[in-house]
Design a protein around this nucleic acid. Structure first.
Lengths: 206, 206
DNA sequence: TATATGAGTATACCGAGTGCACTTATATTC
DNA sequence: GAATATAAGTGCACTCGGTATACTCATATA
């Protein structure tokens, strides 16, 4: 599969990457609120309109890789072994996301920048929460499809809410405490383990 | 305690209530996005500037009673019996918030309107999540102060994240499924029970 | 009665985000 | 290879949420 790799697509991706890198740099230098979209576009040498062609809001330039991580989690659920227990699949799905975060997001420094900007700007905070919540709902739907006998929609939402809430709260707490990458990844894994305990209520382990 | 009840304060509160009622009516009639702050202020016969004197953002006119609910939860923690176990205090704190929601927020119709607007507008959704998250952080801090031996900041964040995440996800899922007040309150309580199971990891019950 | 205070006002302003009509580079078709 | 379709990017005018400033006026206080 050629995967859309013509010159046009490459240039589009390059514009996108330039915008992300430029925005990150400017946020780093002057803070989030003080950096306007017009300034980002100017520094990336594109029009303001082009920025919004790539990102629906100013905040989204910080969340570009979230969708990939969501697809990862959904694929783990879809490709589960037949008869695999809910708890196991959920743990694997979550682990895939955390591992990806540890492998890509944390080392790039993007996660740390994002954590700082979350603390600084309510707008960023709100958008991150909203994005996480939307992703969480999609995973919950996938789980209901996969385990219609074990989970109804509301329970699935509750379980996913607990997992995502625990992991993201732990990640933010750890990053704002100044922890390093390894400690943060570890905090996320511990939070996942704590929250997975909640599943025993629905689906007791042997 | 006289509680600031001069004529000036009464008029201020009246302006505030008028704004809330007017906003609710206009949102109801024309939808959230289609109702501008200028229109709300106009209909309430005050200037646009006055609206922002009472509410920091357009969304906040829908969330006026959230702070009271947070104070309720914090007070339960503060007034705990000496030696009361973490799990119990946390459950009581959460129950106080849910009960207050069921007793005041749901019957007033405000919760239902809010639920509809949450479904309709990402901006409202984001603001609700943000408010919930901010409250969650304050409760986590209070818990760390109350149980310094059991909880560090990251674990507290994880536990609270799990609880708040579970309850809000369940509430939103239930409301957008068209459930009534009683069903929604019940869904929130079940979600809380599920997430509280997670606590056994840290603080095993007898 | 004199004075301080704080709610509300009018106006001009900023920045995020959109609609629209346009150009231009790349892809496709004959 | 020329003709044509497509889609990325542009420029501009616009809406709307939110803020700054300098003001008026009612209420509270001394």
């Amino acid at each position: 599969m050629p995967e859309e790799s013509g010159r046009r697509e490459r240039k589009k991706q390059q514009t996108r990457q330039t915008l992300i890198a430029t925005a990150a740099r400017l946020f780093e230098e002057h803070g989030y609120e003080a950096t306007g979209v017009a300034a980002i576009a100017e520094a990336a040498d594109v029009s303001k309109r082009t920025f919004f062609l790539h990102f629906p809001t100013k905040e989204d330039v910080l969340l570009s890789d979230g969708r990939a991580r969501l697809d990862l989690a959904l694929r783990v659920i879809e490709d589960r072994a037949p008869g695999a227990p809910l708890r196991e699949v959920l743990a694997a799905s979550l682990a895939a996301m955390i591992d990806d975060t540890a492998a890509r997001d944390l080392p790039s420094g993007m996660a740390a920048l994002r954590a700082r900007l979350i603390a600084e700007s309510p707008a960023v905070q709100a958008r991150v929460l909203h994005t996480a919540f939307a992703g969480q709902a999609r995973i919950a739907d996938a789980l209901v499809d996969a385990y219609p006998d074990v989970l109804d929609r509301t329970s699935a939402a509750a379980v996913l809410g607990a997992l995502v809430g625990a992991v993201s709260a732990a990640a933010i707490a750890s990053l704002s405490a100044g922890d390093g990458q390894a400690e943060t990844a570890d905090a996320m894994r511990r939070a996942a383990a704590i929250a997975l305990g909640a599943l025993d209520t629905l689906d007791p382990p042997a």
